[in-house]
Design a protein around this nucleic acid. Structure first.
Length: 977
RNA sequence: GCGGAGAUUGCCGAGUGGUCAAAGGCGCUGGAAUGAGGAUCCAGUCCUUAGUGGUCCGGGAGUUCGAAUCUCCCUCUCCGCACCA
């Protein structure tokens, strides 16, 4: 027997093939229909995609399909990102026989190749970067089509295409013309061996080390001979507590002439400074001990302090010279304490021991939780014995740094900075020092790190680096205006954009490494446009790429004037034809297509792009295009995790898209991914829960098949239960349609699909006694509505059902009709809810009494109670609920003032739970009708108990326990006998 | 560091001023079916009760006729910030 899974898997493949063969998702200009242009960010082609990506693309597909079925001419194209370093990194590692990379790639390729030889062959081919990109681009598209995505694949391109590079150059010429590109110095991580910039990829253990650039303040301590000892610090505010300077006695130092001054720094530091944009000449080399016991002048305070030896000084860290603040720096405290009792060293370097003994810590910061000298305190607390207790000293330093930074206040001995928080003082002191030219920035990596080539990593300053100036006020303002007009969904991400916009400033936009478009203003110098610039206006390129390919246009034909004309309507077509050699017809086609499709109506992507590419996309659109082409809407979703860890390409917890069709099923996975959580939550993938989607899909399939061939020749008059059923389904579908209009795919599926499956279940439960033909006809009506409305989510199964219903058209292209819900339908839906509650109540009591009732008396409330509830609802719609007010109003009501004593009691009850003033109620008559409609079901459910309905308004009803009094609208009273 | 988001019943995850004891799933318990298991189906799953009552949404205080939802404080968790994309 063929299992359901096998069957739908076959169906999925069948329809994908048909869609492709008939090219039903290829989009062309059609001015008779409104257009809708969707983009989902193109994937990076260095690995196969996984179900986490399928969450993002799957949502996009639901939107695209929905719009298509709502009468829009939908364009959803796909391209590939291959620029930047990743492709090269993969290739480099494969070429250099990096074991891990080989292993990783073998794993990836095994999704697609079945033989060992096949896998090896593909991986070996990755030594050529273009093979990496081409292979994965092809596989990713294959995976996408295998998920049933309704892509227009005729517009594929990669960011490495030479034609595309022309487009990016055009973008940069516009940005440059508008003055949005600026130049300046910029510190970067740099390998001394390669003489090149490095990224995380290039650093040994780069992902763990997390190396950053730190800016130290190199403070200049003047010696008598106008030479400066330069001590670098992250805490310039402690300058007021300096007691001495530390030098490593055995290390080698250089005296250098730098930018017109003479400095002494460690030999290693000299080498680093050479890369940091200075004029440097090395005068001489000297040993540390040559500098001991001389005096240096502290900037700002002007005090003279001695130079002492310390072995904790690391000459490969910053300048290799340290100024000592024993009151607030644990290392300094430990070192000075060591030295003061170290007669041997004092003698060895012939230090003036009286002066040395006089050195006392200086207190300059008030810190909560500490006394005068925090460093001394913490060293005692942690039991630091000497400057060689490195671990403890590290810990002490971290703790003090944090505590002083957040809660420290500058003391009275700190000149202009008295009373400032350390957080502020730190920068102010640094600024002052820079101003009076007694300090200079020194850059150093946050951690010692080495390049994969073995070279040390330092910080270099790139001069005249190019930046995109997102800080440009006019640009920012324009972008903010664009943002304010946009739809962002879920809306909570709007704030993230606003914050990003706030801090966005200059961003370096050229790179030394990686694939990409050559930077047009420094041709031949080896500068590449940074790769995010490839991803900000490329949506426009989709509209024209087909014409470039079909007409085999050459890159050199794609002159800036062409793009100016097509995108901005600038220039003269005759000249353009002459200059480019492209026909007038082709140029006009490109222009028309752009103008037809643009703007990009919705861009859907994962949230982690907010702070970069999505924000940049807004910026660049405002810079390049006129307002009518700005981006109107973004929709976002979070990522996917498994076992609590983000599913990411480099981890073993991934489920590749390639395995979805056979491991699960496409429609099941689509349904699950879109409905299990709202887009803004990180979704945890659980196998067990996928199964739920499968069961529901099967149920839908079976229900559908059971009515597919039903043909009802005579018109069937639906009974109450059937009407209620159809009304509930319609109400659910209306909610579903409203949801998907807002791009809430989860609600759409929950309401339109899961709720309706449940409604069908319920109907079958309640309507057992109805004639078969009526049940089938009602179900058929419902299934027909569901097949067309749910096709965007589960297109394959819906196509199949549509076909089996005898239709020749594609459900993927079929219009979703407007669903009418009449007042009558709303009433039915309310009655259904009323009955669900009532049956639950009966159930509850039956369980409590533990005997089987022979008679079930249902007491429907007196009419005046509805009147009272309605009155309360009106009065308290917008104001505080008060008992006196309702009594007074009731008294004035002709209908109610006869019942004032009962009302007094009722109102008291009502006030126990003021929420009661909000509910929708049913009149006694409508309650009765509902109960009558369900009477047979209830009776059967309780083993043919007799159902008796009593209207409390009637005089001589059977009511031995006076239950009728307790009946409330929507809550009838019960008596079981 | 800078900036942001969040904490819901055994777990995941909806709900963001009013039928909210709080959807749905998972798990668990019982039943149906079965050679057994799995899968499936049905029912139950805070406490109490011939019902319409109590307690509850990280902890504490407050606003309101009414708070999971709003405000303040506290505790904890997560995310983004690169010559990565």
């Amino acid at each position: 027997m063929v299992s359901f899974l096998d069957e739908i898997r076959k169906i999925e493949k069948k329809w994908q093939k048909k869609w492709q063969n008939d090219e039903i998702f290829v989009a062309n200009i059609d001015s008779s229909r409104p257009k809708w242009f969707l983009t989902v960010s193109y994937p990076y082609a260095t690995s196969p995609l996984h179900v986490g990506h399928a969450r993002t693309y799957g949502l996009g597909d639901i939107f695209a399909r929905f719009k298509r079925q709502k009468g829009y001419n939908v364009l959803w194209p796909m391209g590939f990102h291959i620029t930047g370093t990743p492709v090269l990194a993969v290739s480099w590692k494969i070429k250099n026989n990096d074991e891990n990379e080989w292993k990783k790639m073998r794993g990836f390729i095994s999704y697609y190749e079945s033989t060992k030889e096949g896998i090896e062959k593909v991986v070996s081919s990755f030594s050529e970067p273009e093979n990496v990109a081409n292979y994965f681009a092809e596989k990713i598209i294959q995976d996408f089509l295998g998920m049933g995505y309704s892509l227009d694949t005729t517009r594929e391109f990669t960011t490495g295409d030479p034609e595309y590079n022309k487009f990016i150059k055009w973008q940069y010429s516009i940005l440059n013309n508008k003055g949005l590109i600026t130049q300046g110095d910029y510190p970067i991580l740099w390998c001394v061996n390669d003489k090149n910039a490095v990224g995380e990829d290039d650093i040994q253990d780069g992902d763990e080390l997390n190396v950053e650039v730190n800016e130290f303040v190199g403070i200049k301590f003047k010696l008598d001979n106008d030479v400066f000892l330069v001590a670098a610090t992250l805490r310039p505010e402690t300058i007021f507590g300096a007691t001495n300077v530390w030098i490593h006695p055995n290390a080698t130092y250089n005296e250098i002439s730098i930018d017109g001054e003479i400095w002494i720094v460690s030999k290693e530091a000299t080498m680093k400074l050479l890369e940091q944009n200075h004029e440097i000449e090395i005068k001489r080399e000297l040993k540390g001990d040559e500098l001991l016991d001389v005096y240096a002048e502290v900037p700002i305070t002007g005090r003279k302090i001695p130079v002492y030896p310390a072995i904790f000084v690391d000459t490969d860290h910053a300048t290799g010279i340290v100024y000592s603040v024993p009151g607030h720096a644990p290392y300094d405290h430990a070192a000075i304490a060591d030295l003061q009792k170290d007669e041997e060293t004092i003698a060895k370097y012939n230090l003036n021991s009286e002066n040395l003994k006089e050195i006392e810590p200086i207190s300059l910061i008030d810190v909560k939780g500490y006394g005068e000298f925090p460093a001394v305190e913490i060293c005692q607390k942690l039991g630091v014995k000497s400057q060689e207790d490195r671990d403890k000293l590290e810990e002490a330093t971290q703790t003090i740094y944090k505590d002083e930074y957040y809660s420290g206040i500058m003391k009275s001995n700190t000149g202009d900075y008295v009373g400032l928080k350390v957080e502020e003082a730190k920068n102010k002191v640094a600024d002052t020092l820079f101003e009076i030219n007694l300090a200079s920035p020194i850059y150093e990596p946050s951690t010692k790190a080495f390049c994969r080539c073995g070279g040390q990593i330092i910080v270099a300053i790139i001069q005249n680096q190019y930046f995109l100036n997102y800080g440009n006020p006019e640009w920012k303002e324009k972008a903010s205006k664009a943002l304010n007009q946009m739809l962002i969904t879920p809306d909570k991400y709007r704030l993230s954009f606003e914050n990003t916009f706030d801090w966005l400033d200059k961003r370096p936009c050229v790179r030394r490494r990686g694939l990409g478009t050559e930077f047009p203003f420094t041709e031949g110098e080896g500068w590449i446009i940074e790769s995010l610039s490839d991803s900000v206006i490329y949506m426009a390129y989709y509209t024209i790429v087909r014409h470039i390919k079909e007409n085999k246009l050459k890159p050199e034909q794609l002159k800036p004037e062409l793009f100016d004309y097509v995108f901005l309507s600038k220039g003269n077509i005759k000249d353009l034809v002459k200059n480019s050699g492209i026909t007038e017809q082709t140029i006009n086609q490109m222009k028309q297509e752009f103008e037809y499709w643009y703007p990009n109506d919705l861009r859907h992507t994962a949230v982690h792009h907010i702070s970069n590419h999505l924000s940049f996309a807004i910026f660049h659109h405002t810079a390049v295009f006129p307002e009518k082409y700005w981006l109107p809407a973004f929709s976002l979703n979070e990522m996917l995790s498994r076992d609590g860890e983000a599913m990411s390409k480099s981890k073993p917890n991934v489920i590749p898209i390639a395995q979805v069709p056979n491991k699960y099923s496409v429609d099941v996975t689509r349904l699950h991914l879109a409905s299990i959580a709202t887009p803004e939550t990180v979704l945890e993938w659980k196998e067990d829960e996928v199964n739920f989607a499968l069961q529901r899909l099967r149920k839908f399939w079976e229900y559908s098949l059971s009515v597919i061939n039903v043909s009802n020749k005579e018109k069937i008059e639906f009974s109450f239960l059937s009407k209620v059923f159809i009304a509930s389904v319609k109400t659910n579908l209306i909610k579903a349609m409203e949801s998907i209009e807002r791009f809430s795919a989860r609600e759409y599926i929950l309401e339109g699909y899961y709720s309706n499956i449940r409604a069908i279940d319920e109907y079958h439960k309640f309507a057992k006694h109805l004639p078969e033909m009526e049940k089938k006809t009602a179900l058929q009506e419902v299934i027909e509505m569901m097949v067309v409305t749910m096709a965007p989510a589960i297109p394959h199964i819906c196509e199949e059902l549509n076909e089996r219903m005898g239709n020749k058209d594609y459900i993927s292209l079929k219009q979703i009709p407007d669903i009418d819900v009449s007042d009558k339908d709303l009433l039915y839906a309310l009655q259904a809810k009323y009955m669900t509650d009532l049956i639950e109540d009966i159930d509850q009591i039956v369980k409590l009494v533990k005997t089987k009732p022979k008679k079930i008396h249902i007491y429907v409330n007196a009419d005046w109670k509805n009147e009272l509830y309605e009155l309360a609802k009106t009065i308290f719609e917008n104001e505080a609920v008060q008992i006196g007010k309702i009594m007074a109003s009731a008294k004035e009501s002709a209908k109610l003032n006869n019942y004032m004593s009962e009302i007094a009691n009722e109102v008291k009850l009502m006030f126990k739970d003021p929420t009661i003033f909000r509910i929708e109620t049913l009149s006694a008559k409508n309650q009765e009708n509902a109960i009558l409609g369900f009477k047979e079901f209830i009776s059967t459910k309780y083993e043919n108990a007799e159902i008796l309905i009593h209207l409390s308004d009637r005089k001589d009803i059977y009511d031995p326990q006076n239950k009728s009094q307790k009946a409330r609208p929507m809550k009838p009273a019960l008596l079981l006998e």
